[in-house]
Design a binder for these strands. Structure first.
Lengths: 350, 350
DNA sequence: GGTAGCACTCCTTGCGCTGGAGTGCTAGGA
DNA sequence: TCCTAGCACTCCAGCGCAAGGAGTGCTACC
């Protein structure tokens, strides 16, 4: 995409488009030719601007809500603005430090840390922020422990590189001694050391169980524990700041808000919005229709990956009105993602 | 409270009040004297009803939005209605079965089960539902396991009567052998068996550590594990269905909605709304000002406890417009609470 | 004590008007 | 050829006003 947008725009048109988007983002009012010449020193008359704007509209970058109104950017207009026209922003030193401080005060427990991050970003961005949780699939195996409760029940605990991923209660049909569980746990710990969770096969487990001559029951317990560690049932996404959206004029229509609240509760849809950015491990901006969701046509999402070691393990996103300060929000998301990534190293179990 | 409300109301006034509340809940429009005589066979003229309504207003049960409008119940009117006038409802057999089915399909893991319950109740009630999580303080100790990761790090797992309450990573300043952790775990398991978490003192732990001649480091690890088990950092409340509130005409004013969304995100405030009902272990209805929250004056909350064994361990609540179908929502909440209580026995670790 | 009748109040809705912001077009100038 | 000044036109937002209607309180009567 990058760079393709301005091909058919001369410098003046590009500047006018950028100014219209900028002004519209700032005020929320359709931008007229006079505003443009008066507020920004263009050195040309409003009539000229009008001609240019008419052409920009014909080319699909601007839209007129009604005949006697100013112009408003179209999806394409925003897209060009984001890709080619806007100046990237940087966070102030103070802001950067505040993010750092807040996240360093947050819990070292992964889930809590993600929750805090989403709340922080919601507050800073004044929009709806959401953060996908690292999928345990990509974590490394560290330790498994079968805990004996009674001769026929126990709990399986799996510790991964990012903390305790799951616990699962199991019931057996034959009696088992505490020692059996310990021996099996030890054997598995050796055998599975440093595997990625996704790479652990059932045959690894079966082999360990067979070697120690233990029951299939126990094997199933281990398989279940590992499976539940991989497909953690916890919500996939932490979201915060929905109430910020209420300030935006685009929500005078309550139905829009309703669908958004529903989407936030239905974690899946929220996750899907950023799934491809996640796959690409790249920052991404999606504007209006690009979200492929009828209910979200006048919203946009800014997404930035955060890393654990060399890999992107999750995304940090801001959902807000299409008329959002893109550069600012990208800076915020990036800064927060960076700090979160650092923090994850602290969380890591080595 | 019960029974005090109708002292100063003769039967006819009581019936008129009940009808006004009923009709207002159904339609959302202020109720006039004609509506009352026409829709409900009162056997008296509208003029008489007007006189009665004027007296009910003077007595504080009704309110007139403006001179030429019908009447609307005041907080006191709703209170009397709820305490003395309304007919309790029961769930249909089918509804009861549906609740049972849905909760039986839900996860056996405590947090998940509470989440599912709040979503179910939100959906059924068409309002905002929230469910407080059992506070681990009241759970019984079942098992502790210190898991050796390296000679100076480990994870402490505490299993309680309602599942795995917490895990906490610890770091030691002196080297420890896996066997030390096992021996300490075993000693603690014997010593703490069946204690309530709240009853476990640091001296119990110190004694076990001393007996085995282990380091203070390890003692601290255990203390931390138990403390984090008790004050679980997980959100206190699961909430669902906020979007349902948007349908209510009382939310044409967006500021109200804003504060509610904020309150839902700030779990604490939500919890405080039902804290006293929780302490009393009794169902409760709070109407308007009774919520002691300026932003919630035209809302009400219906709350019902759910049990684990003999004790109420949490509350199941519905937050909606003051103009809510109280009897219906109480029936829904009670039915759901009952089923949830049953399910908790399944979750229990014996 | 209950009721019919009536004047009165006040909200809601719809309508037309006006002011203003912004446009597109045309004609003239650099 | 490109830019600009001028102008007629469009359309929305806001306002005031009138009509309609629901509901009341009061009075007089049964």
């Amino acid at each position: 995409m990058k760079g393709t947008g301005t091909g058919d725009l001369d410098q003046r048109k590009a500047y006018i488009l950028a100014t219209v988007v900028y002004e519209y983002i700032a005020t929320g009012e359709p931008v007229g030719s006079q505003t443009l010449t008066q507020k920004y020193g263009l050195g040309i008359s409003s009539a000229t601007v009008r001609n240019e704007m008419a052409e920009l509209e014909a080319a699909g970058y601007l839209v007129q809500p009604h005949t006697s109104a100013g112009r408003v950017p179209s999806d394409a207009g925003y897209r060009t603005f984001v890709d080619d026209l806007m100046a990237p922003e940087k966070l102030l030193f103070d802001e950067r430090r505040r993010i750092r401080d807040e996240l360093h005060d947050a819990s070292r427990e992964l889930d809590e840390l993600i929750d805090s991050t989403s709340r922080l970003l919601g507050r800073l961005s004044n929009n709806l922020a959401f953060v996908t949780r690292p999928q345990p699939d990509s974590h490394e195996f560290r330790h498994i422990q079968l805990i004996w409760l009674t001769s026929r029940t126990g709990v399986g605990i799996v510790v991964t590189s990012l903390g305790v991923a799951a616990q699962s209660l199991f019931e057996l049909t034959t009696d088992v001694k505490p020692d059996d569980m310990t021996r099996l746990s030890n054997a598995l710990n050796v055998r599975l050391a440093n595997h990625r969770l996704a790479d652990i096969g059932e045959d690894d487990i079966a082999a360990a169980v067979a070697e120690l001559q233990l029951s299939d029951d126990l094997r199933n317990a281990v398989v279940t524990a590992l499976r539940s560690a991989r497909s953690d049932e916890a919500p996939m996404v932490a979201a915060a700041g929905a109430q910020n959206l209420l300030d935006q004029p685009e929500f005078r229509d309550l139905r829009k808000l309703r669908s958004i609240l529903r989407i936030v509760e239905e974690q899946k849809t929220l996750y899907d919005l950023v799934a491809d950015a996640m796959a690409a491990e790249q920052p991404s901006v999606k504007i209006g229709h690009e979200l492929q969701h009828d209910e979200l046509v006048d919203l946009s999402v800014v997404t930035v990956p955060y890393r654990f070691g060399p890999h992107a393990v999750g995304m940090l996103s801001i959902l807000g009105p299409r008329r959002m300060p893109y550069a600012r929000l990208m800076a915020l998301a990036s800064g927060t993602a960076e700090t979160l990534s650092e923090r994850l190293s602290d969380v890591e179990i080595k």
